[in-house]
Simulated assay, not measured.
Amino acid sequence: MSLVIWYTYTPDTLHYLVPKRLPGIFIAIAVTFLKVWFFAAKIRVLADEAISFMAAVRISLSWDFASAVTPSTIGGAPVATYTMTREGIPLGKSSAIMLYSVMLDQFWYAIAVPIILITGIFYEVVPDEIGLVGNATMFLIYTGLLLYGALLSYGLLVNPKAINRVIKAIFRLPLLRRYSESINAEAENLESYSYELRKKPMDFVLKAFFYTTMNWLCKVALPVIVVLSLLPGPEVLLVLRSLAMNLAFLIIPTPGGSGGVEGLFVLFLGPLIDRAAFIGLSVFVWRVITYYFSLGIGIMAMLWYVNRSVSNKLEKINMKEEEKEEIGQA
């Protein structure tokens, strides 16, 4: 981000800001909160509303936080599974919820990819600046997303026993064998809940997919809103390129995509920004609102779980000490 600002900065940049557009920054902040709300709503639906909405918000924030500090290719799913168990959802069920949530994302990709390909006939959705290698990479990303979505859908909706077998096979490895007994039980729970998900009515699936779609639309809208808050631009092309850019984010191997997403922002949206000096400013504002916001508020959510865990351990220690004192007195 610093490099982008350094190479695009020119004196008197702020002089060209249009004051009447600046309130758009507050709209971007509001959309960030909406993104969290939709994500939490999806988790609560998948959990059969067995948890409170605040619990779902904490899980959502923790998931975002973990995604921000781990490589994009890993995401925050393992942490989300842990936080769900801390909210009272069994591990097997929380794993199934996490996988089902990821599968819904794959359904969204399956819709987004054709949109990009079809609109690419009329608009330059993938910029020429990325070159032949970039175009080939984007093709591989799109293909990989569709194949992964198909495999995950098969495992969850058609043959849940296959996921059970894979998990058991992994935990037969020498280093993991000691956990096999407890994990095998949870794998059975995962398979059982997967079968339950298959029996859910269509309105359950549609509601969960609606929240997934709205969450992703918020992600796509954020960079567009930030750019338009600073200066005019081609709205339709900004949205389409933001969509393509967000899909490309998924393969960046750095924590939270740091470094890579800023470069993709410059490649995809930079050419649509009339004044080069505003590219660095746009990247800065966008990352502060999305990435650093997730870090800051996610830390608070994670600390809630840490404090709760410490409190529970202290209570157990105190109970043991009291029991010892009672035995001593007896």
Rank of each mutant, 00 (worst) to 15 (best):
I5W: 01
I5Q: 00
I5A: 02
L14P: 06
Y16R: 13
Y16S: 09
L17P: 15
K20C: 02
I27N: 03
W37N: 06
F38W: 15
E49W: 04
I51K: 07
S62A: 14
A66F: 11
A66H: 06
G76M: 01
G76R: 03
L91H: 13
G92R: 10
G92N: 06
K93Y: 00
S95P: 03
M98L: 09
L99R: 02
L99N: 01
D105M: 05
Q106R: 12
Y109V: 04
L117V: 13
T119M: 15
Y123R: 04
V126E: 01
D128T: 10
I130V: 15
L132N: 11
M138I: 11
Y142Q: 04
Y142M: 11
G144V: 01
A150Q: 11
L156Q: 11
L157F: 15
N159C: 04
I170F: 07
S180D: 06
I183P: 00
E191T: 06
Y195N: 14
E196D: 06
R198T: 09
K199W: 02
K200V: 04
K219E: 08
V220N: 02
A221Q: 03
L243S: 08
F249S: 01
F249V: 03
G259E: 12
G263Y: 09
F265Q: 03
V266A: 12
V266L: 11
L269N: 06
G270C: 04
P271N: 05
I279A: 05
L281A: 03
V285D: 10
R287N: 07
L295I: 14
A301C: 07
N307D: 01
K316A: 10
I317K: 13
Q329L: 09
